Simulated assay, not measured.
Amino acid sequence: MSIFEAIMLICFGAAWPLSIYKSYTSRDNSGKSISFLYIILIGYIAGIIHKLFYNYDLVIYLYILNFLMVVTDIMLYYRNKGLSRI
């Protein structure tokens, strides 16, 4: 297990709860880029696949946690987009 990979994922992951909270409470997508969210999601998917096939270790759980937080933010993006139409 690479401690540096774990630190990177922890640092990246620390930002997602704040982003999710802002998306949920503001009900607004200003400042959000759905393209950016999907690019990040693809990166986490690639990390998970790499861990599954080439270097399985406990860091995979950080990738999965971050993946789930990005999916949550994407779902809130579409919810907020629907709310802005009303």
Rank of each mutant, 00 (worst) to 15 (best):
N55A: 13
L37Y: 15
K51A: 08
F67V: 09
D57T: 13
V71Y: 09
P17K: 02
N80Y: 04
P17S: 01
I42W: 13
Y78V: 06
S30A: 06
I10P: 04
C11T: 06
H50F: 14
S19L: 10
L52G: 08
S35H: 07
T72N: 10
I3T: 13
W16L: 02
F4M: 13
I10W: 07
F53A: 10
M8A: 11
Y77F: 15
L65E: 09
G31L: 12
Y24Q: 05
I48N: 06
S19G: 15
W16Y: 13
A6Y: 09
D57L: 06
Y44I: 09
S33A: 12
L41I: 03
Y21K: 11
Y63S: 01
I20V: 14
M8F: 09
D73N: 12
I42A: 15
D28A: 10
A46W: 07
L65F: 09
C11Y: 11
Y54E: 06
G13P: 08
S30N: 14
R79G: 01
M75K: 10
K22M: 03
G82K: 13
L58P: 03
A46S: 13
P17M: 04
S19H: 11
I34A: 11
G47Q: 01
S19V: 09
L52P: 10
M8S: 10
V70M: 13
L18V: 08
L62Q: 03
R79V: 08
I45T: 12
L58M: 03
G43W: 04
R27Q: 01
K22W: 01
S23E: 01
D28Q: 06
I34D: 08
D73A: 08
L76W: 06
G47R: 03
A6W: 05
S84A: 11
I86M: 04
K51G: 02
Y56S: 12
L41N: 14
S30R: 06
I34N: 10
G82M: 12
G13H: 02
F67Q: 07
L68C: 15
Y54N: 09
K51R: 12
Y61W: 07
T72R: 12
N29K: 02
F12M: 11
S26A: 11
L62V: 01
K22I: 04
N55Y: 15
Y21N: 11
I74G: 07
I39G: 03
N29F: 07
Y61E: 03
I7L: 11
E5Q: 12
I74S: 13
I39E: 03
R85N: 09
Y77K: 12
W16Q: 08
M1W: 04
Y24D: 01
G82P: 00
I60M: 05
K22Q: 08
Y56L: 14
F53I: 15
S30D: 08
M1C: 14
Y61D: 00
I49S: 05
D73V: 02
Y77E: 06
Y54T: 08
S33T: 14
M69A: 11
V71Q: 14
K81I: 00
L68E: 06
S35G: 14
Y38V: 15
